[in-house]
Design a protein around this nucleic acid. Structure first.
Length: 415
RNA sequence: GGAGAGGUGGCCGAGUGGUUGAAGGCGCACGCUUGGAAAGCGUGUAAACGGGAAACCGUUUCGAGGGUUCGAAUCCCUCUCUCUCCGCCA
């Protein structure tokens, strides 16, 4: 959420930057509503002041006049309600502005390559996809998952199930012990306010799984990422400056409808309605946000370095970033069966955009200021399994276990 | 599912119709004190919005929404959330 005053004072910047984000919000409409609103505020305040004076005087002669003032005030309030509703609606659908160093462009074609790590292994046998490897070793069962739940689900079995658990534990251990993140085990179901706070609502309602408690209770949603809960841990709080930075890590299932991705990644576990992800979130002084973003990116990269999986880092273009982000790095791992790099992590700096929506502040030299929030996958577990399985495959459809992971896998060297 | 109790400032907690934006405490800031610290003492300390170059002025806000009243944290209605006991249950 942006500050309306900022928009008022920097209309050109906003228009230019929003265009680069493929946003079709008309700022002129917003300014018009804002102006109307402020006019009403002034009229209303004058009336309220008069009314207050009468009520304080306790002078019965003026009581009837006060009653009339109430009616006039109510008229203004009615007029204002509609304006504020429209204004809020527009405001909450404006994406964050990209920072200056973000490449301009409408999609991923404009993303900027940052760096590469690891060497791509040459296989002497025909490369198999993780789906085929899993099915041939009888450790992924898509037939059963389709029967139980439908498409975009999977049943992992035996050592593949163990691998999933091992990767989660390995990542959590690394982030907590080496990088000083605090582990959280959060709720997976959140209310509408929390979803609004990080930007999933109102614009992306179609991507979310909503669940019914009872007909009357407030709306509840399955989290699409732990970012939602970890970031909202500071919702409505005013923190002390010395409490920052806060760094949280959690492994949670994530639930996404994947609406609009029909026909994309239909084979295998690349794109599921439900998947595990280890998520990193930082709450920092806005001045520290860019340093923190680099740090977070390094934390995520470290997983791939230790697992010896080749990857590259790209800086997303303005049009390819998520709604709440001001700057985003993607980490992409090498996927042999697709012969290309695929996203496994997004690390984003959101500035104060989410903090405004959540009302999360901290005391900085006596004044209350909004915190900055950052989030990043560290890493997506399903996709990490894909990368690990495919990059370590053998001709007989077995998969070699990286050394660092063996202690999490009962010392198995092959699965 | 049955019964009850509650939601007040960064936190805790008074307050049942009229200078209550809200006592008191904690925390925080500054000062005094000290060799230094702690304790103690003193002073200060809500936010949002609008107007203004500024000083400052104004309005709103005691879970949310509606109602009664000249006037509501306080009375009424609806909703919501939290807690306690019983029942059920992982």
């Amino acid at each position: 959420m942006h500050n309306i005053k900022e928009i008022r004072n920097n209309i050109e910047t906003f228009e230019k930057k929003l265009k680069s984000r493929n946003s079709n919000i008309n700022l002129k409409d917003i300014l018009k509503l804002d102006k109307l609103n402020r006019e009403i505020i002034q009229i209303k305040e004058k009336l309220e002041q008069d009314k207050k004076i009468i009520s304080k005087s306790k002078d019965e002669k003026n009581f009837s006049k006060s009653k009339k003032l109430t009616e006039e005030i109510n008229d203004q309030i009615e007029k204002q309600k509609k304006i504020i509703f429209d204004l809020n609606n527009l405001m909450s659908n404006i994406p964050n502005l990209p920072l200056d160093e973000v490449p301009l462009g409408s999609d991923e074609k404009s993303n900027k390559f940052i760096r590469k790590n690891g060497s791509i292994k040459q296989f002497s046998h025909k490369i198999k996809s993780h789906a085929l490897l899993g099915e041939e070793s009888n450790q992924i069962d898509f037939v059963t998952s389709a029967k139980l739940s439908g498409s975009r689900f999977a049943v992992l079995k035996d050592k593949y199930a163990l691998l999933e658990r091992a990767l989660i534990n390995f990542m959590l251990d690394l982030h907590t012990s080496k990088f000083n993140y605090t582990e959280i085990s959060p709720p997976l179901i959140v209310n509408e306010k929390t979803m609004f706070g990080t930007g999933q609502l109102p614009k992306f309602e179609d991507d979310q799984f909503e669940i019914k408690m009872s007909a009357e209770s407030e709306r509840k949603f399955l989290i699409p990422t732990a970012e939602v809960v970890l970031t909202n841990l500071v919702q409505d709080k005013t923190l002390e400056a010395k409490e920052l930075p806060l760094r949280f890590v959690a492994s949670t299932p994530c639930f996404r409808k994947e609406a609009g991705s029909y026909g994309k990644d239909t084979k295998g576990i690349m794109r599921q309605h439900q998947f595990f992800k280890v998520e990193l979130v930082s709450i920092v002084d806005p001045e520290e946000s860019q340093k923190e973003l680099e740090r977070m990116l390094n934390c995520a990269e470290e997983i791939l370095i230790q697992l010896n999986i080749p990857y590259q880092v790209v800086l997303l273009s303005s049009g390819d970033m998520g709604f709440s982000a001001e700057k985003t790095y993607d980490i992409e791992t090498w996927i042999p069966s697709e012969n290309k790099y695929r996203e496994i992590s997004s690390c984003s700096s959101c500035g104060t955009f989410q903090a405004r929506r959540m009302n999360a502040k901290f005391k900085k030299s006596g004044k209350n200021e909004f915190v900055a929030t950052l989030n990043g996958s560290g890493l997506a577990v399903g996709r990490l399994m894909v990368a690990l399985i495919e990059n370590n495959q053998n001709k007989d459809s077995s998969v070699n276990v990286p050394d660092i992971l063996k202690k999490y896998m009962n010392n198995l060297s092959k699965i």
